[in-house]
Simulated scan of single mutants.
Amino acid sequence: MDAIFHEKQEGSLCAQHCLNNLLQGEYFTPVELSSIAQQLDEEERMRMAEGGVTSDEYRTFLQQPSGNMDDSGFFSIQVISNALGVWGLELILFNSREYQGLMTNPINEKAFICNYKEHWFTVRKLGQQWFNLNSLLTGPELISDTYLALFLAQLQQEGYSIFVIRGNLPECDAEKILKIVRVEQQQRPKLIGEDDAQTSSGLRVNLNPKDQGPGLEERPLDSDEEQLRKALALSRQDMEVEDEEADLRRAIQLSMQEPTISGSTTSMPCAPKESNVSATSGTSSTGSIGGNQENSLSAEEIRRKRQAYFDRQAQLNTQAAAAQQQDTKPTGSDGQ
């Protein structure tokens, strides 16, 4: 995905990276964004001065730091909005009534800008595919159309503010190339600073070689597919646990049954030859116990036998513990 412009994080210049990744080029520098911020600060100062330069409000305003930028490189939404206005682009809040009333499918948009706790990043459509161009990632992250809405919903749940980009974005090489070929990404990019070792959980065989372009042969495992895989793995684990518990219950039942019980072949597919099983007990060959009730155990008898079994087990455990304690006691001198 070398054709995609992806500016990585430097300092706290995420607003600059967000804009350049959106526009797919080095369109803005910190100096240019600072100039926009200073212009906004001056406009705010002039509005405050209309109430009188000797007022307490105006003096308090002068003492406060700029709300549009700081020394770390942070820039406000007003700075980003003004910078995009140069290109005829505007921002619309994703969860606003104005936008939600349009009932627009997110995949039909061109780009989104996301913000949370002073961090900005871009999600943009290039060709017919969506990419997460977060500057904190080691590279662009492919987002499937089916997962885009879930991705945006998850960001909102985490507290992100999302803005829709409206207007004509400038042309870029990535847009031209990805209109012809489709990117396939096998391993998702990690956050900058994470271990470079990639796990094998994201590996997937490429099944569409005809849709590949040069150097774009990797096939992504969509996040919704990853979640499905995890859900299936968890369900398999639950099934294994249930199977183990069922086996344990069957073992306890078998251990509690006496070989002299008549009509008890229901749970014993291999009854011992010496057991006194009556051929005329009325128990069907399929193991149902709807035959002669006199040869079947009542619920009270089953309860008593189960309790007797656990009492015997507890007694054996107590005896074993006592024997072990006896073995560990000092025996005194050898002659005694």
Score class of each variant (00 low, 15 high):
Pro330Gln: 12
Leu234Gly: 03
Phe310Glu: 15
Ala279Asn: 15
Pro220Asp: 11
Gln38Cys: 08
Ile180Met: 12
Gln129Pro: 13
Glu184Thr: 05
Leu13Cys: 10
Ile80Phe: 02
Glu300Asp: 12
Lys230Cys: 07
Met103Phe: 06
Gln253Ala: 07
Glu32Asp: 15
Pro269Lys: 12
Glu225Gly: 00
Asn276Trp: 15
Asp243Gln: 11
Leu178Asn: 02
Glu245Ala: 13
Met268Gln: 10
Phe61Trp: 07
Asp41Thr: 10
Leu136Asp: 05
Ile77Trp: 03
Val241Thr: 15
Glu44Tyr: 01
Arg236Ile: 05
Glu274Val: 09
Gln39Phe: 03
Gly213Met: 04
Arg97Cys: 06
Glu42Ile: 08
Ser76Trp: 01
Asn208Trp: 08
Gln9Gly: 12
Ser235Gly: 01
Ser81Pro: 00
Glu175Lys: 02
Asp173Leu: 11
Gly11Trp: 06
Met268Ser: 09
Glu258Asn: 11
Gln237Ser: 08
Asp56Val: 05
Trp130Arg: 02
Ile165Lys: 09
Gly51Phe: 15
Gln187Gly: 05
Arg303Ala: 13
Thr146Asp: 14
Trp87Thr: 00
Val86Thr: 10
Val277Cys: 12
Cys114Trp: 06
Thr138His: 01
Asn20Thr: 09
Glu184Arg: 13
Asn95Phe: 00
Tyr27Leu: 08
Ser34Thr: 13
Asp2Glu: 13
Phe151Ser: 03
Ser288Gly: 14
Ile143Arg: 11
Val205Asn: 07
Tyr58Gln: 08
Gln78Ser: 14
Glu258Tyr: 11
Leu254Ile: 05
Leu169Tyr: 07
Asp70Tyr: 04
Gly332Leu: 12
Asp243Phe: 09
Pro65Trp: 01
Asp247Arg: 15
Ala314Trp: 02
Gln336Ala: 11
Ala197Val: 15
Gly127Ile: 10
Asp56Lys: 09
Ala3Tyr: 01
Ala251Trp: 11
Asp238Gln: 09
Phe310Thr: 15
Pro209His: 03
Pro209Ser: 01
Ala49Pro: 04
Lys190Cys: 01
Tyr99Ile: 06
Pro259His: 09
Gly101Glu: 08
Asn115Tyr: 04
Ile302Phe: 00
